[in-house]
Design a protein around this nucleic acid. Structure first.
Lengths: 308, 308
DNA sequence: GTTCCGCATGAATCGATAG
DNA sequence: ACTATCGATTCATGCGGAA
C-alpha cells in the first residue's frame, strides 16, 4: 500500500500557496474565516474588505487546482443591523471574473444551529457550500455518495460512512459485478444538493467549525484514494484528518502556530499510537482498539501544545 | 364577519400595479417567471435581461408596500452549460440599490424534488425565498409559526416529570424554581430559516409552482386577518386561494387570460357553492361538506375555461 | 455492559450602554 | 452621531458520570 502524505504548512496561505505546484490538486475544501468572525484568532476581516482580501488567494487556488478538479468553499454571510451582508454574493461574482466557473451551490442544513431569539429574524440554520471549477468537465464520482432509499435515511448523511463500508466490502469481493450493482441501485439513490448534518459540539477537546462528515462527503464525491486534497484555512485540521482516514494525500495551511502545531502533533501521535498498537498486537500482549486511538488523539488540545 | 376581498387583475403587472394604492399592502408573496422558463407565457426573459426586466416592477412593489410590510421573492437560478446563472445574485444587489433592505434568505428545502440524473450535478432540491423590507422594523408574528420541539426533548423530558414535581413542590415555599416545569410546558419552539416542505403533488388539474403551505407560512408570519396580500405573478392562483382561506384580502395580477379566468371562475364557483351550500343547509335538504366544495373547485382547469 | 440524565457549548444577533 | 463592548435570548447535541 502506497504511503499517504500529509503536509502541514505554517503561514499566510496567500504566500504558502506559492510553494504548491501548478495543476496538482484534485479537491480544495475550505472554510475561510467569515467576515467579522474569529476575531481573536484571525483578526476579523471586515465585510467591505472581504472580496479584496480573498481574491489573491483565489488566484493561487486557481493555479494549483487540476483542470478537472473542484473547489468547495464553505461560507455564510452574517446579519447586521437587520440586514444580511452582501460580500458573499460579491465574492461569487468576483471569483467568476477571475476565471472560476460557479458550478453549483450546495446547502448545508445545520439542525443544531446557534440558539437565540430576535424580533426580526429566526435562527440561521444553513450555510453555503459553493462549488467552483476551472473547467466545465470535472471528475465526479456520484456513486460514492449514494444514500439509502427512504426518508429516514435521506436526511441522515451521518450514516453514510456505515453504509458505504458495507458497499465497499461487497465491491471488494469482485466477481459479483452486475448483480450486486443492480441490487445496490435499487436500494440506493443519488443525493440532492442539500446536506443535512449537525454541527459538532465543542464538548470534544478540539473544536471544529464543520463536522468530519462534511469534507468526507465531498472527498468521496470528487476524489479517489491517492488524490490530493488542499485546505488553505486548516484550522483545527478536520480536512487533513479526514483525508488521511480516507487515504487521500493532503496539504493543509494554517496561519496560527498553535493550531498548526496541534495538527502536526496529532498526526505524529496517531502514527505513533498506530505503530505501538501494531507492535503490541503482534506481540499478543495487548489490544489497542481504534476507539482508544481516537480518544488519545482527541486529548491533544492547543493548551497542551503551547505548554510543551 | 367582515367581507374578504379578492381582486384579480388581468395584465402586465408593471402596468397593473399602477392601479394599486401607495403603502397599502402588508405582504407581497410571489414567484416570478424564471429566466428562460415559461417562454410561451412571458416570452422567456433572457438571463442577461432579467434584472432590467424586474427593476421597474420592483419599483412599483416598493411603492405599494406598507412601510412595515414584507416582500418575499421565491426564485432560483437555473444551471446552463454546467454553470449556475448569476442573475439572482445581481437582482439582490440591484434591489438593494433600489432602496430595498435584504433582510433574510430563507431556504425552501423541497423534499421530493424533480427527478433526473446528470453527469455533473445532483438534483436541485432547494429554492431561495428572499425577504426584502422597506424598513428595518416590520411586522412579524413569530408565535404563529412555532413548531413542535425536536424529538430529543420528548425522549429526555419523558421521565423528568416525576422528579420535577417533587422538586417543584419542595422549592415552591422558597419562591424559586419553576425552571424545569417551564421546559416541560415548552413543547413548541421557534423555527429556523430553513423550510422543509414537500412540493405539491401534481395530481390536481392545475399545477402550481409552489405548495399552498409556502404562502401560508409567510402569511401567518407577516400578516393578520384582514391584512392585504399581493401576488403580481399569480399564475394558477395559489397565493390568493390561500389568502382567502386564511381570511386575508388579496390582489393577484396575471398576464395570461386563461389563467386569470380560471382563478376568477374558481373564486366565483367557490362563492356560489358556499351560498348554495348554506341555502341547502338551511333548507335541511342536503349537506354540502367543505370537502365537496374543495373538490368542486379543483375541477376547474384552464382547459375547461377555454372551452366555455 | 447498557441506558439515562445533567451539563456545557456553540461561524448568532439585537438592543442598550459606554467612550 | 458613530463605534466598541456587553448582556440577554435560545435549543440541538455529545460527553461523562450515574443508575
Amino acid at each position: 500500500m502506497k504511503e499517504i502524505k500529509t503536509n502541514i504548512l505554517l503561514g499566510d496561505c496567500k504566500e504558502a500557496l506559492k510553494t504548491v505546484d501548478d495543476n496538482s490538486i484534485d479537491l480544495i475544501f475550505t472554510s475561510p474565516p467569515y467576515a467579522d468572525r474569529r476575531v481573536k484568532t484571525y483578526g476579523g476581516i471586515k465585510p467591505e474588505d472581504y472580496v479584496g482580501w480573498f481574491l489573491p488567494i483565489g488566484k493561487q487556488l486557481l493555479r494549483v487546482l487540476k483542470p478537472d478538479g473542484t473547489f468547495i468553499l464553505n461560507i455564510k454571510e452574517k446579519a447586521e443591523n437587520g440586514e444580511r451582508h452582501i460580500y458573499v454574493l460579491e465574492l461569487i461574482l468576483a471569483l467568476r471574473k477571475q476565471g472560476w466557473l460557479w458550478t453549483e451551490e450546495f446547502i448545508w442544513h445545520k439542525k443544531n444551529c446557534y440558539p437565540g431569539k430576535w424580533p426580526n429574524r429566526f435562527r440561521d440554520s444553513w450555510e453555503r457550500l459553493l462549488q467552483f471549477n476551472k473547467n466545465r468537465f470535472f471528475k465526479m464520482y456520484q456513486e460514492e455518495v449514494m444514500v439509502p432509499v427512504g426518508d429516514w435515511a435521506s436526511d441522515r448523511l451521518k450514516r453514510l460512512s456505515e453504509t458505504d463500508k458495507t458497499r465497499d466490502n461487497s465491491k471488494s469481493g469482485s466477481g459479483f459485478g452486475k448483480n450486486v450493482s443492480n441490487w445496490i441501485d435499487r436500494r440506493y439513490v443519488y443525493p440532492t444538493n442539500v446536506l443535512h448534518l449537525p454541527t459538532e459540539c465543542n464538548n470534544k477537546n478540539h473544536s471544529a467549525v464543520f463536522p468530519e462528515a462534511l469534507p468526507e462527503w465531498f472527498m468521496k464525491l470528487f476524489t479517489k484514494q491517492g488524490d490530493w486534497v488542499l485546505d488553505p484555512f486548516l484550522g483545527s485540521g478536520t480536512t487533513v484528518r479526514v483525508a488521511r482516514k480516507m487515504r487521500r494525500n493532503s496539504i493543509g495551511i494554517e496561519i496560527v502556530p498553535e493550531y498548526c502545531e496541534m495538527v502536526k502533533s496529532e498526526i505524529n501521535q496517531v502514527e505513533y499510537l498506530l505503530c505501538e498498537g501494531e507492535e503490541r498486537y503482534e506481540a499478543g500482549k495487548n489490544k489497542r482498539s481504534a476507539k482508544l486511538c481516537r480518544k488519545a488523539h482527541r486529548r491533544v488540545s492547543p493548551k497542551a501544545v503551547t505548554k510543551s
